[in-house]
Write a protein that binds this DNA or RNA. Structure first.
Length: 446
RNA sequence: GGAGUGGUAGCUCAAUUGGUUAGAGCAUCUCACUGUCACUGAGAAGGUUGCGGGUUCGAGUCCCGUCCAUUCCGCCA
């Protein structure tokens, strides 16, 4: 018999069915045992009676939580159950008996002793079974799909920039070094250079989704050493503001789709409502933002950038004033930005770029790029960068390269804010952090 | 890299501030129970209090070292 998903059972009353899934709950009453079986679509109660056979009840009594079972039985109406029906077990096979007790508690409706995140991550494959995490993975899938779809429907081409590269792409940020046969290579901190190559290649509108690597020992709730960057680059722009509008529409369409598909479930499991901004996102210049912050007495980190506290407070102020959770911050001093950002021709101290904040956290940096090779060289020189290592990059601008700009979204941060998670680690399938890589193996080794 | 907080049973926590045999809930095991649904009831097992040293008649508690975790900062998406 073919397996049927649990959420389809309601159409199969009084029919014989086969379900496969996990043991979610066991309530042993002696001569009658109630099981709750869970699969990817839902839960159902299954009943084993002693009258159905000694062997059957013996098997059921030997079950442990989270074991995998293959059950054949009849769907029967049952007023005693909330769902209105249950499965009368005729036959059961244990496909995989779970060892017990489990090393962590799987998060559920009635558990108040949820295991600490660190240990849950050690046993991530058990942790991910929880309804919350199952939903998180579904939302994550839809989120990326919709961002991608938005690009594709706007005539974009998708590229896969190499992850192993010869030259570190960003100044300052630390890179992971890898052995490439008898040479040194690096894991890409960003697809930036090769994304820009697409501009010189005449691709005009490209996006790139994939892992990027940051060798920074950051111990915060918003940093990973490996994360997924959703990168966009667009040619023939007149202003970086076009990028802002594009990103705004991209995010709004994604949020709309997520809300439609999972809004209710998200409200139920994550206690958060997805708000889709009615009009445009808000804009503020660094100078204006600093003035607002000074007014309420938040100490400034300096004129070039914001401290996390400033980011949080600024978002709060804007949300209070306008109701908008999204804020573009513009007019950053060029010295604090990447060398490939274009300078404002009217005020060379200012970069033609922006950051996007969502509820107190930076989810994007973007900018119009400097496509004029001499100006680009000058910018790199100003920062004391090694120009010879950048020569390959400069080549892209030698044989005709259109004006262009782009941005990158940290998708884990996006998901984290969308579901109101406390840590980015929760929003990541299997997070790598400065001291998490390979940690579980070490533990087992002991 | 810097600062703070923490580490007690498989999990979540307690231990009256240094005092006798380190407790509870959940999970586990045994027994009972034919309508449970956070099943219930009776019982059992489960601990080198992260590790090493010190102070003290006495340390889970205080001190030093060390490891691990975590939060914030720096760095960034």
């Amino acid at each position: 018999m073919e397996r049927i998903l649990i959420d389809q059972l309601k159409n199969k009353i009084e029919q014989e069915v086969r379900i496969r899934g996990r043991v979610d709950t066991i309530r042993d009453q002696g001569k009658i045992v109630f099981l709750v079986i869970r699969d990817g679509s839902g839960k159902v109660q299954a009943v084993a009676w002693q009258g159905n056979g000694e062997e059957l009840i013996k098997t059921v009594k030997s079950l442990t939580l989270e074991s995998i079972v293959d059950i054949t039985g009849e769907v029967k109406e049952a007023n005693q159950v909330e769902q209105g029906f249950e499965i009368d077990i005729k036959d059961i096979r244990i496909d995989s008996l779970a060892q017990s007790p489990l090393p962590i508690v799987v998060e559920g409706e009635h558990n108040d002793n949820v295991t600490a995140l660190d240990q849950r991550l050690d046993y991530r494959w058990i942790d991910l079974r929880s309804p919350r995490n199952q939903l998180m993975m579904s939302v994550s899938t839809l989120m990326t799909d919709k961002l991608r779809e938005f690009c594709i429907s706007n005539n974009f081409k998708e590229i896969q920039a190499p992850r192993i590269i010869r030259t570190a792409s960003e100044s300052g940020a630390n890179v992971f070094e890898v052995k490439y046969f008898d040479k040194k290579a690096y894991l890409a901190q960003s697809p930036q250079f090769h994304k820009q190559m697409a501009m010189a290649a005449g691709l005009e509108r490209v996006f790139n989704v994939g892992p990027v690597f940051r060798a920074e020992k950051s111990f915060t709730t918003r940093h990973l050493t490996e994360y997924t960057s959703f990168d966009v680059e667009i040619a023939y722009i007149d202003s970086y503001k076009e990028l802002c509008v594009f990103e705004q529409e991209m995010i709004k369409s994604m949020l709309k789709a997520v809300k439609e598909e999972y809004g209710e479930r998200i409200k139920e499991l994550f206690k958060i409502e997805i708000n889709i901004p009615n009009g445009d996102f808000e804009y503020i210049t660094v100078e204006q933002a600093k003035a607002k912050l000074a007014k309420i007495g938040v100490s400034s980190k300096g004129d070039e950038d914001f401290s996390p506290e400033e980011e949080r407070k600024l978002s709060e102020i804007i949300k209070e004033e306008t109701g908008c959770e999204f804020l573009f911050v513009t007019d950053y001093p060029h010295v604090g930005r990447a060398f490939y950002h274009m300078k404002d021709p009217h005020n060379p101290k200012i970069a033609l770029g922006f950051d996007l904040f969502w509820n107190g956290i930076e989810i994007t940096t973007g900018a119009q790029r400097e496509h004029r090779i001499d100006a680009l060289r000058e910018n790199a020189k100003e920062r004391g960068m090694d120009l010879t290592s950048l020569e390959d990059y400069f080549e892209y601008f030698k044989y005709g390269c259109p004006p262009h700009g782009g941005f990158a979204i940290g998708t884990e941060r996006l998901l984290m804010k969308m579901l109101n998670l406390e840590s980015i680690l929760e929003a990541t399938y299997l997070p790598n952090t400065p001291n998490r890589l390979g940690k579980l193996i070490t533990k087992i080794g002991k």
